[in-house]
Design a protein around this nucleic acid. Structure first.
Lengths: 205, 205
DNA sequence: AATTGATAGTTTTGTTAAAAAAGTCAGGAA
DNA sequence: TTCCTGACTTTTTTAACAAAACTATCAATT
């Protein structure tokens, strides 16, 4: 026997999947509740039976996307042979996360400054996980005596994340080529690795 | 005797001044040719006698603004007692440049991607000057034997400028408070200095 | 409890007219 | 000639409003 609430959960699951698919490919603003319902061969009204409104549905999907990311971080924490490996992991993982979910994140670009609090919570949670991963890596490196003692690991990691964020392809986008191509992405990655290396060096004795 | 062309230059000068004043306080989009002419007690048509159109006038003002900035850089180049001093100078000078001209630069925010080539030339020129100042500083420091030899000073300076650009206040702007307040600015400056220090450390032996 | 068609309410989009600003020009003053 | 202006034309921005597209609700049905 499958309980009622389990049934509900299954249905919610299917909705989240369909919604995720739409949001991921067309973004928040370019997908309608009708389309999601259509994909599931159910009525739009049913969506509202399971989710209070469109933004709540989006946030629920976001929650799962973020959870996947958080898991990939916590799975790896404390498994690095040195600080550099941790930095590289952070750079690559975050980069892929952003690239693969680019359309999904249009919600952020649209609502810019005034995002719902729930979204901010998720954003902060993600940020904290990234911080934690790297702070741990720094502390480990410190214990191993490879870098000098730091009293402000948090501050330093936050700084690094900001700095990495600022790194961009050399050719200042002269023309409207929204979405950087493969070469640009590679260039950015290379630069970030260089920055990480200098950074690590700067933390050593 | 004042020559004809000198007279013209004087008049142009006055127009540039008035235009600068308007652009600086209200931005490009919120100042009209009529207003500029009004400030000078001359007719709008006369502006068009001296300048082909509004954007050309803006660019001419921009040219002067940039030249001032370039001068402040070239005046200081090679006068630093060490690399750190050069970095601090760069951080403070650029910061002030951006803050004091914030409204003036609305042109950039409006036209985003498709700026006129002339503007891009100025932007690149400024960027190159900043690069040159810091590359020189690095090379000097290198000659003095305080940092290890670098074969890619350009690359490293470019990276630092990008990284500095990414540094922002901790409190991710939760509400729409366009234009960061004094505290935020101070926080950013402090962080940038910290980044510069780690960076310098990373370049040492 | 789960589901839907019909429908109410809201936001986005498209249309058009008026207002404002950019840009032109024939002609007058210096 | 060079410098300058008022009046005029053209282009862009704004405002108002109707149509269309969506979101969201709900009484009725399985």
């Amino acid at each position: 026997m499958i309980s009622v609430t389990e049934q509900q959960d299954v249905k919610k699951e299917r909705i989240l999947e369909a919604a995720h698919h739409r949001f991921l490919h067309f973004g928040y603003s370019k997908t309608t509740m009708n389309e999601i319902a259509g994909d599931l061969a159910m009525s739009k009204a049913l969506l509202y039976y399971y989710f209070p409104d469109k933004s709540q549905l989006y946030i629920a999907v976001m929650r799962r996307v973020a959870d996947d990311y958080l898991k990939s971080l916590s799975d790896k924490i404390n498994t690095f042979k040195d600080l550099r490996e941790a930095f590289i992991f952070q750079i690559d993982t975050q980069h892929e996360f952003i690239v693969t979910n680019y359309n999904f994140f249009d919600f952020f670009r649209i609502n810019e400054q005034n995002l719902p609090d729930t979204i901010w919570e998720i954003v902060n949670q993600v940020h904290e996980s990234e911080m934690k991963l790297l702070v741990t890596a720094i502390e480990t490196e410190e214990k191993r005596g490879r870098i000098k003692p730091v009293d402000n690991a948090e501050e330093i990691v936050g700084l690094l994340l900001d700095a990495l964020h600022g790194v961009r392809a050399k050719s200042i986008p002269h023309k409207k080529t929204m979405f950087p191509n493969k070469e640009h992405l590679d260039e950015i990655r290379t630069k970030r690795l260089l920055l990480a290396d200098i950074f690590i060096k700067g933390l050593m004795y």
